[in-house]
């Protein structure tokens, strides 16, 4: 229901990926990373992209961010083709990517500085954002003095400082421990609620994607294609208690089934059919090798 609200409020930040194909290498080493993918993120919508590792979900995000050029198809932001990185798309990386030589506040100010915003205005904006992230008292610390969760909160508000139309997040909580992750998800959904910008969120965590998203794209194993699109009907604002509702759990089951098939497909060359029966090994008098 809040999604419709978002649509009326926000008019910019429409990501449209059409018939995307990405191939790395040439000839014998050719790897099709992404094949014929079309997806979109409506203005103000929170969309997750989930799939087994190596399915090309990060590649897709890199294209939308402007780091990688697709082999086929195109990526559009508000109708304009994406060709290079820009401050209209904020990006949050898994590895925090804060500049270690800048104080926390200077990190948040970075995008504004690049845009030529004057010092006093940068300062005010950065402090407001740090306050939002609950880290104002750490403004003069260096990133190396902070914990992973704190760093990533700064990474998020730094990406928001230039008022981008979309936020691209590449497994932003992947490096955090489970407890911190859960709290970070709540913080993110709160921040998103306030900014109402489009988010494309890459993850391999099923609960995380359901808790945060309006819609979830499930990708297949390499070559990455869109396997399914799932709408999350949970109301906003999302709270931690919702994860215990039957609705939520049904979604988890549904997604698990979809992902499991793909993970198996992705690992097929490694494990064949034997791996699933506990490696199916018999240890005979000559050792493990006997069955091979």
């Amino acid at each position: 229901m809040s999604m419709t609200m978002a649509e009326t409020e926000v008019s910019k930040g429409f990501i449209d990926v059409r018939d995307m194909g990405v191939t790395f290498g040439a000839n014998d080493n050719k790897v099709v990373a992404v094949d014929n993918v079309s997806l979109n993120v409506q203005p103000g919508e929170f969309v997750s992209l989930i799939g087994p590792s190596g399915c090309g979900k990060s590649t897709l995000l890199s294209i939308v961010a402007g780091f990688v050029k697709p082999t086929r198809g195109e990526a559009l932001l508000d109708g304009k083709a994406i060709t290079k990185p820009g401050s209209d798309r904020g990006v949050v990386f898994q590895q925090y990517s804060l500049f270690p030589w800048l104080s926390v506040r200077k990190n948040v100010e970075f995008g504004l500085k690049m845009a030529g915003v004057e010092q006093s205005k940068r300062n005010t904006t950065a402090r407001a954002l740090l306050d939002l992230a609950g880290l104002l008292s750490f403004e003069n610390h260096y990133p190396d003095q902070l914990s992973g969760g704190m760093k990533q909160r700064i990474g998020i508000v730094r990406a928001l400082a230039t008022s981008p139309q979309v936020l691209l997040m590449d497994e932003p909580f992947g490096a955090l421990d489970t407890q911190t992750r859960v709290v970070m998800q709540e913080i993110l959904t709160n921040i998103w609620q306030q900014f109402r910008i489009s988010v494309l969120f890459i993850t391999h965590d099923i609960e995380e994607s359901i808790f945060l998203s309006d819609r979830i794209y499930v990708m297949t194993a390499r070559p990455g294609r869109i396997k399914a699109v799932i709408k999350v009907p949970l109301p906003r604002p999302r709270t931690a208690e919702m994860t215990d509702t039957p609705e939520f759990m049904n979604l988890v089951q549904e997604l698990k089934g979809l992902i499991r098939e793909e993970s198996l497909a992705a690992m097929a060359p490694e494990i064949k059919d034997r791996g699933l029966s506990g490696f199916g090994m018999k240890v005979g008098p000559k050792g493990v090798g006997e069955i091979f």
Partner: peptide
């Protein structure tokens, strides 16, 4: 230098000289 820092700076609108 960690490549992700360069990418982060580009996303934040840094020109070549900056």
């Amino acid at each position: 230098l960690d490549g992700v820092l360069v990418r982060a700076a580009r996303c934040l609108g840094a020109s070549e000289i900056r």
